[in-house]
């Protein structure tokens, strides 16, 4: 009973905090209302006894919002959050798209014949979920993970505007390297 009440209360807070992202007039508030929304979802997942997935959701989302705050000031230069600003852009199209998507998903929910439960939930629901999602494709998933990491590294390498010749000189012999921002280990 308490679990049900908590679940629905968290659901309501998650939706309201999600809506607040577009209503508040500061980027810091928008970022952290999104974080609150995700924390509520993470707690709901905890209530579903997917402990690992729930806690990791909270972990990732809080960190993500903090990183977003770093970029917020880095790219905006000015201090956007202390000057009120609107959190929505291109209102009409955005509204049309979001209403259309909502209607589509809601129709899907209502029209889909939901299956009744067969059997009982397994002891370790997280392991069962992983098995169900990945199962026979585990090799593919593991390979995709490595490919993604390599893509990120390659993307950063290609995007870096200074290479080793800029740092160490044409003969790569200059020590210490000439860096606009020296690092802590003196490379």
């Amino acid at each position: 009973m308490i679990t049900h009440v908590a679940f629905w209360a968290l659901a309501v807070i998650a939706v309201l905090a999600g809506a607040a992202v577009f209503i508040v007039n500061s980027m810091a508030r928008a970022s952290y209302s999104l974080a609150v929304s995700f924390i509520c979802v993470g707690l709901q997942v905890l209530l579903l006894q997917q402990n690992y997935v729930g806690v990791v959701t909270i972990l990732m989302m809080v960190m993500e919002m903090a990183i977003m705050a770093v970029y917020m000031v880095m790219f905006m230069g000015m201090n956007p959050a202390l000057m009120p600003m609107s959190m929505v852009h291109d209102k009409r199209h955005a509204l049309a798209v979001s209403i259309a998507v909502f209607v589509l998903l809601a129709t899907g929910v209502l029209l889909e014949p939901w299956p009744a439960r067969r059997g009982t939930p397994p002891d370790d629901v997280t392991a069962a979920l992983g098995e169900e999602l990945m199962g026979p494709k585990m090799l593919v998933m593991a390979a995709v993970g490595v490919v993604m990491a390599v893509t990120i590294v390659a993307g950063v390498v290609l995007a870096a505007h200074r290479g080793r010749y800029d740092r160490f000189g044409d003969d790569l012999r200059r020590r210490p390297a000439r860096d606009p921002q020296p690092g802590g280990v003196g490379r």
Binding site: Y32, A35, Y52, V55, V62, A66, A69, A81
Partner: peptide
């Protein structure tokens, strides 16, 4: 007695990112 207590600690420690920055902000 959480089965993923270590991850719980980790999730709590990243909250410092939010709280310290928000205090500064």
């Amino acid at each position: 007695d959480l089965d993923v207590g270590v991850v719980w600690f980790n999730a709590m420690d990243v909250l410092a990112w939010a709280f310290v920055w928000l205090t500064g902000w």
